[in-house]
Amino acid sequence: MSIETREARQPWILLSPALTSILLLLIVPLMFIVVYSFWLRTATGADQVGFYLDNWAEVLTDEFYRDILLQTLWIALVTTGVCALMGYPAAYFIARSKGNKAIMLLLLMLPFWISYIIRTMSWINILGVSGAFNSVLISIGIIDEPLQLLYNQVTVILGLVHFLLPFMILNIYVSLEDIDINLEDAACSLGASRWQTFLEVTLPLSLPGLAAGGLLCFVLGAGTYITPVILGGPRDAMFANLVFEAIITQLDWPLGSVLSLVLIAVLGSIVLVYNRFLGMRQLMKGLA
């Protein structure tokens, strides 16, 4: 074997364990559930192999599934909007402040290290019947009976915002840092007010970061399983809850496959549209 062919082979030897894993544990399984979605659940428990359209017909025609899909997208959309409104000023402050950026960024990363379930359940301590909020209101005499604040759509969105806000801030921050500060100075010296400069120079230039953060918040939010279970009421189920219900509780794996594929198709097409217009590079910048 010549040296050249050995050189050419080396990277593939290094890559093969990782690529094989991805192929066997992700790509093939995804193709497998496409096949599985056409099988049929039978009363005996063994799934009937074949080509049945029953599950697809059920999911695509039943209003129940459509409503929960719409509710899921709505919750994700509102969450993304709130994250953008709360995250933008904070990202702007970190990018433009003369204080200790490293500390502010480290603090921003810290939530990623704190368990997701702890952060979600922490809101029960705040908003629960004997939580901080009710205790304060009762002790200063505004209310006599604790308010029932938890277990509704608002608290689900609150939990999701709490979870996703750092992703949004980091992405906006990265794009704000990329802006040449001279552009803002030039706008100011040409007579634009600070507000005009922001609206016509800074904001448009930071839109890629805002879009990348928005995509992450939306896709991660719409795929959530835990938050609605802990902070939502019985009517606040999201699409991932249906998947769990079908697979783990009802053991209806063909139906669960269809639901999974619907979820990945909806979210995947959003990612594709994003990729078509903005490309994945900005997203990678924010992730790394």
Binding site: F32, V219, G223, Y225, F244, I247, G256
Partner: peptide
């Protein structure tokens, strides 16, 4: 890939 979907597929 949404984690739920990855979980189901695997």
């Amino acid at each position: 890939v949404p984690e739920v979907v990855l979980a189901v597929a695997l």
